[in-house]
């Protein structure tokens, strides 16, 4: 039984084997980007929004409101980061229903990559917000004794994120594989439906946890950030 799509080659480019993980990731990326381009290409304030644009607005504003609930002073970069995490994981998991599609999130490499991204993003957001000195000071809070524990906590946070996402997505696939052997015509459908639900929940949890980590790293007693606006 194959547990990771990393080892399956989807196609080869210039002698380079592209695994299912990377290939399907590109697929998800293309799907999300094309949908965004198609919906937002004729975006003018004087034109009433159509249903597609409204759908995207609902998704984006829902993500934004969730982030603002966790961190009212969060910058838009947190939205870009956490929102992309959510959309990528959610769409990867939802595309499970497409025959032949293996979610990239079922690969431990993908979940590790996402966890590493969070692991790197948290200090970066913290440094951007508080400066490098202010951020490093958080490792010796409340006292210097806590430094190793804080470092371990930081790493274990990333590892737990990666394992949680991988475990959930993979378990769904493994359970579906096992049940396929028991009752090939009935259980896979139920499991796939369940997989859709758990996939969305996992996407939500992963994005929320990433936001919580980032907000905890950026939380200071200083002045609140001014409201941002993209130019």
């Amino acid at each position: 039984m194959e547990l990771t799509p990393d080892e399956t080659t989807l196609f080869t480019v210039w002698g380079l084997d592209i695994s299912e993980t990377v290939g399907f990731t590109w697929g998800v990326m293309i799907l999300l980007t094309l949908t965004s381009i198609l919906v937002t290409r004729n975006l003018r304030p004087d034109v009433p929004p159509n249903r597609w644009r409204t759908t995207l607005e609902v998704i984006v504003t829902a993500i934004q409101s969730q982030i603002e609930e966790i961190s009212p002073r969060a910058s838009r970069h947190v939205l870009y980061f956490s929102g992309t995490l959510f959309l990528f994981i959610a769409f990867s998991n939802l595309l499970l229903v497409v025959p032949g599609f293996t979610p990239p999130t079922a690969s431990l490499s993908t979940t590790a990559a996402l966890a590493l991204s969070v692991l790197i993003a948290v200090p970066l957001f913290g440094i951007t917000r508080q400066g490098i000195g202010g951020y490093l000071k958080t490792y010796v809070q409340p006292s210097v004794v806590m430094l190793p524990f804080n470092i371990i906590s930081e790493f274990s946070r990333g590892i737990s994120l990666a394992i949680r996402l991988y475990g959930n997505v993979m378990s769904g696939a493994v359970i579906a594989g096992i049940l396929l052997g028991v009752a090939p015509f009935f259980f896979p459908v139920v499991m796939d439906v369940l997989g859709l639900l758990t996939g969305l929940i996992q996407a939500y949890i992963f994005a929320i946890l990433a936001t919580v980590y980032i907000s905890s790293a950026t939380a200071t007693a200083g002045k609140p950030l001014p409201k941002e606006k993209d130019k």
Binding site: L32, T33, S36, I37, L56, Y80, L87, D230
Partner: peptide, 11 residues
């Protein structure tokens, strides 16, 4: 990509 084609235009 999403920042360029989704978040910025929408927001």
């Amino acid at each position: 990509l999403l920042k360029r084609f989704l978040y910025k235009p929408i927001l």
